[in-house]
Design a protein around this nucleic acid. Structure first.
Lengths: 258, 258
DNA sequence: TGCTGTGAAGTCTTTCACAGCA
DNA sequence: TGCTGTGAAAGACTTCACAGCA
């Protein structure tokens, strides 16, 4: 890719036969990159607040907790927004990443399930800050309906469809007990929602085209436990602990294959 | 794809000594696999509760929301716990995965920061269920200290080190405001903790050997927004949408030129 | 000179597809 | 026969290392 302009009007791809669309605007940003953009954005906002005008890939990477090669590669998927010898303009990069993530528009979010977690989410500041507006809080428990939380009155889940349609909700957060999650999920997808953030510890079944992201406390803890156990046992490097074969592990199978 | 056409022609491989330990019991379980084991465990527990004695990779994969090839490959890293022609014994597999994840022992967890989120976590049932025991709730706010939550009395963060040492806490959950997170992190790592679950929206700096897992609500929403925006724009398949250049994308950046 | 952008190499993960055992 | 376990291929992601522009 020549660094030149990213406008197809420039005649610079003489020999290279259509490789995969030159530099143009290949919208295929890798998932791994998308997942890190919010991190960069946060780091940039920190720099912005301190009035920093430009930042090098090295420094920004440091602030975001990644290495600089990865950061540069990630940003290169968005376009050529840096200046060689100088770095990136903080404000400009904030704008570009925000636009790429779709944060320059307003997203109406509904939270279903106003238990401890739902309340925590409703009160979570970082929510409203970045283009996400809580447009509805719903719960099935009549004892909770009517409560005022974070400036909103909790509505009954009977209203789910009308809230979604009436307030143009495009993202639904499910914070219900596990048993209710699939049902809520079915209703919101039926109502046209295609983005769901699920806190309930269940695997949701959704129609094609619906995006579900999951946050699962217990899974994170289990992953930590795995590594913690590993540290406790042998040293950091080893293979074949349990020399003899303690705890009959069904040795066979891979015995002498391959 | 194509059958015999693609031949790598064996480029390198001149003298690759010691590939990576034959197989024996190579304890190097891929991270991606470890991250899915809790999922399988949950699915298996569901089957167990319904009294299912054995399950095929196909069915278990379905219940866990992955494909069967991936599931078999994952399980193969633990050992050969299935029976060809039959499937996996549910109870036995539960035991093996639990053991691998270190869930057959008890883990003492301390939660620092008892705001909305901390309370939600303290009351989260899935917590205690799987070998994780909340051994302490701490907060810096005197107004909160002394409260009884989920059967525990909130202690002051001054007690952090003594709680960790005295109750053998090995995993700390940070649910403080962003500004306090790094300080708490420093103290707990100093106190010897090497596993941290961080809910504060900051990148924590930790010494070598310390594991940090992060749960970040706002990042999840931003990722959803990205995909939602993508759906709204062009169709699901395309490269170079915005043919003309709708939404003047600030061509310049580094001077539209080159 | 300093730092970005990026081919190329390296590593990790997923998927295929089938040998082989119950 | 049916289903696991697994090499091998394909694909995704990361890192290297450096050309080339400001």
């Amino acid at each position: 890719m020549r660094p030149g302009t990213h406008r197809p009007s420039v005649p610079l791809e003489h020999r290279h036969v259509t490789r995969r669309i030159p530099q143009a605007r290949d919208r295929g940003i890798p998932d791994a990159t998308v997942a890190r953009l919010p991190l960069y954005l946060r780091a940039l906002n920190g720099l912005s607040e301190r009035g920093t005008p430009t930042v090098s890939s090295e420094d920004l990477a440091m602030a975001a907790g990644v290495n600089s090669a990865k950061l540069r590669k990630d940003l290169s998927h968005l376009g050529s927004y840096g200046t060689r010898g100088v770095g990136y303009d903080v404000q400009y990069l904030i704008y570009q990443i925000s636009r790429e993530l779709g944060l320059t528009q307003d997203w109406a979010v509904a939270i279903v399930g106003v238990g401890n977690l739902g309340r925590a989410l409703a009160n979570y500041g970082g929510f409203a800050s970045r283009g996400f507006r809580i447009a509805g809080l719903l719960d099935a428990d009549p004892a909770v309906v009517g409560d005022r939380i974070a400036g909103l009155v909790v509505e009954h889940t009977d209203e789910l469809e009308s809230v979604i349609a009436g307030r143009a909700v495009s993202i639904v957060v499910i914070a219900t007990p596990a048993t209710a999650a699939q049902h809520v999920c079915d209703r919101v997808t039926e109502a046209g929602v295609t983005s769901i953030l699920n806190f309930a510890p269940v695997v949701l079944n959704v129609p094609e085209g619906v995006d579900v992201r999951k946050v699962d406390l217990s899974i994170e803890l289990q992953i930590l436990a795995f590594h913690e156990q590993r540290k406790a046992n042998g040293g950091p490097i080893m293979a074949e602990e349990w020399p003899g074969g303690v705890e009959q592990v069904n040795e066979r199978s891979i015995g002498a294959s391959s």
